[in-house]
Computed example of a mutant assay.
Amino acid sequence: MAQKVNAVVALGKGQPVTVETILVPDPGPGEAVVKVHACGVCHTDLHYREGGINDDFPFLLGHEAAGVVEAIGEGVTGITPGDFVVLNWRAVCGDCRACRKGRPWYCFNTHNATKKMTLLSGQELAPALGIGAFAEKTLVAAGQCTKVNPAVSPQVAGLLGCGVMAGIGAAINTGGVTRGDSVAVIGCGGVGDAAIAGAQLAGAGTIIAVDTDDRKLAWARDFGATHTVNAKTSDVVETIKDLTGGFGADVVIDAVGRPETWEQAFFARDLAGTVVLVGVPTPEMTAPALPLLEYFGRGGALKSSWYGDCLPSRDFPTLVDLHLQGRLPLDKFVTEEIRLDAVETAFAKMHQGDVLRSVVVF
């Protein structure tokens, strides 16, 4: 029998979000209902509200979530009711060309729940990233549930579901940061600071944080940045070179996703260095026109990082355990805890750069 729960819904493009009563059906085959304990407010949710993803309104927002499995559908294995899980939007299929090549973090056929959550009117909801967790309960594909150590707080664990994992993975999985490397991170919001934390965790020697906001640069030091550069007052490329013996960084991570920051990243890397694009560009943006000789003469790698190239079943439990050991300060990402009806206010704070993460706590 479908359950009535409260949830945050974007009814139309650019409209303030509202708390609505929605219907969550019983799980079908391969599905699970999860009682949500906490869910972070991510910029992607704001993109959905603004129509920046698609126009499939109304959207059930929220996707950086942790909670407890309440019910499972037919054929579900690997999770049982009562399991504490982090929700992920990469439920790998195991059978696409990427999975068959042993690279499931590039799965081309990730799946979501087939049954639909609806408004009381019966209108179907489009859950953000197939999750929709600004809700007391949500319906997901069972593969979107990743079990982790229940000793971790849900406010912290849920953040691995998107932004924090994207940043840490950009450094470790995509960028291949290792002991002694020099790393520069351009853009010190939640994803950029997570990349800094990932670089420190991997043993990087020099970690350079770049932003235009001194508040964010101060936050970056809390996550392990050894140097900071204000792009308003310093030449980013030349300063990074000065801090790396005149060579440039081994790995430069663009956590902004604009043509000008990508070009800075390109020229701020060492010969044979790596550029990682993890900031999400908008559709109209184009790459800078650079002489082809610049690509040939510098070598190295230019990479994009999808979800930190993570495999949730491998990475989420490991990162939670590192946090519980005191080696990964995930709690520092939580700026404030809020109620469900404060999501619209949290969007404004996020847009103004006043928070790293607001987290809805149920």
Score class of each variant (00 low, 15 high):
V237Q: 15
D315R: 01
W219L: 01
K216A: 00
G246C: 14
K303G: 09
A225H: 09
D321C: 03
P317Y: 01
N230G: 10
Y307V: 00
E263H: 10
Q325R: 12
V343I: 12
F347I: 01
L277E: 13
L217E: 11
A249N: 08
G246M: 15
V237K: 13
V251T: 10
L340M: 09
G224C: 11
G300D: 03
A231W: 03
A268T: 09
F316P: 00
R269F: 03
E284H: 15
Q264P: 03
P317S: 05
L277Q: 15
D309P: 06
F223R: 09
D331L: 00
A265N: 03
L290W: 15
K216C: 08
L302I: 14
D331S: 13
S313G: 06
G279W: 03
D321P: 04
H323P: 03
V278Y: 04
F347Q: 03
T274P: 13
V252D: 01
V256S: 05
L322T: 00
S304T: 13
A255K: 14
L217I: 11
E238C: 10
G297W: 00
T335F: 07
E260I: 02
L277H: 01
V275H: 04
A272G: 14
G273P: 14
L340C: 10
D315I: 00
E284G: 15
L217V: 11
F296D: 12
T261W: 12
I240K: 06
R314V: 12
A342D: 07
Y295W: 03
N230Y: 04
L324E: 06
L322V: 00
G224R: 08
R215M: 07
L293T: 15
E238L: 12
V237G: 10
D309I: 08
K332I: 06
I240V: 10
T286L: 05
L290N: 14
G257W: 05
G297T: 13
L277K: 10
K241F: 02
Y295F: 13
R221T: 15
E336R: 15
P312Q: 15
V236P: 01
A218R: 00
V275P: 09
T244P: 07
W219H: 04
R215V: 11
L290C: 13
V237D: 08
G308E: 07
G224S: 10
A301I: 05
L217A: 12
G279T: 14
D250F: 03
P329F: 00
F247R: 15
D250R: 09
A218C: 02
V229E: 04
L217F: 06
L328P: 00
P291A: 08
G326F: 01
D250S: 02
P317N: 01
E238G: 14
G279M: 05
E294S: 02
A220W: 07
L217G: 09
P317I: 02
P291S: 06
